[in-house]
């Protein structure tokens, strides 16, 4: 295969990953790394570098729209970015001391977790701002967000410390594996901090770019970020995610979610198997 055909196939694959990631809300990163390592036999270190770059692109692109609409809570985002960036740098440093087989196995388990989280029945109980803890009030984390009718709904924030620690784990996983680790962020923000879904998904997106940029520095210097590989991946994912965001209204998303989750579970077992047998 020549570089030209390799690039075109990667461009198409990354486009599909970006499209599916955007339609299902799971992000394209979880599918990029298995695609590069399992199908294209690319060393997982190059795959992590390219995925990390694509994560920065899609999250910044999406955050640009959300933040203007005033849905993301920039104070919660900034405060939790302390946790995610510290975690991300630690994760990127840890990656240097971890064999690629272990990374593949951890990746597989995080994939499984993503599939489970995407299927779990979620209940949204908006916390009354008056019931926020002291720390949440001191940090001015309470906010409002516009609902479907454009009415501003006030909300409070619970368990700030647990949320912060969970975010550090999310950052660590992001730095170790080169993904956005949306699943862990959902656990931190929805389950612990009890943020409304709209606020947690958009604020999480807002943070992913900064988190990934924190580990990108370490990966760049270590030579994981290859221009020839990152080019089709970042362009493909970016265009796919953009098209996906325009298609969002479609009613077929439930079917797509199931399909995507099935693909993810399959990839998860592949990654774990390849990790245990030392093929990655």
């Amino acid at each position: 295969m020549t570089i030209l055909s390799f690039t075109l196939i990667l461009l198409l694959g990354s486009f599909i990953a970006g499209l599916l990631g955007s339609l299902t809300g799971l992000g394209g990163g979880v599918i990029i790394i298995p695609m590069l390592t399992l199908i294209f036999q690319i060393d997982i270190r190059y795959a992590i570098g390219a995925s990390l770059i694509s994560v920065i692109a899609t999250s910044s692109g999406a955050a640009a729209a959300y933040v203007r609409e005033g849905i993301s809570n920039i104070r919660i985002g900034m405060f939790l970015e302390i946790a995610t960036t510290v975690g991300a740098v630690l994760g990127a440093i840890l990656a240097a001391y971890t064999t690629t087989s272990y990374i593949a196995i951890v990746f597989g388990f995080i994939l499984l977790l993503s599939a489970v989280v995407s299927f779990k029945h979620k209940e949204e109980i908006i916390l009354n701002p008056a019931n926020s803890g002291k720390l949440g009030k001191w940090l001015k984390l309470n906010g409002t967000y516009p609902n479907e009718k454009g009415k501003e709904i006030p909300y409070g924030v619970a368990k700030v410390i647990s949320g912060f620690l969970m975010m550090m784990v999310a950052g660590l996983v992001s730095g170790l594996l080169g993904i956005g680790s949306g699943a862990l962020k959902v656990i931190a923000m929805d389950n612990f901090m009890r943020l409304p879904f709209k606020v947690s998904t958009t604020t999480s997106n807002f943070m992913i770019g900064v988190t990934a940029a924190a580990s990108a520095g370490v990966y760049l210097e270590r030579g994981y970020i290859d221009p020839g590989l990152s080019m089709p991946v970042v362009i493909g994912v970016l265009v796919g995610a953009f098209v996906g965001s325009k298609l969002l209204v479609s009613s077929g998303t439930k079917f797509l979610r199931i399909l995507f989750a099935a693909v993810i579970i399959f990839l998860a077992f592949q990654m774990i198997y390849n990790g245990f047998t030392g093929k990655i």
Binding site: M1, T2, I3, Q41, Y46, G228, L229
Partner: peptide, 9 residues
């Protein structure tokens, strides 16, 4: 470089 071989294995 389009007609060269990629090596990322």
């Amino acid at each position: 470089f389009g007609n060269q071989q990629p090596h990322y294995t």
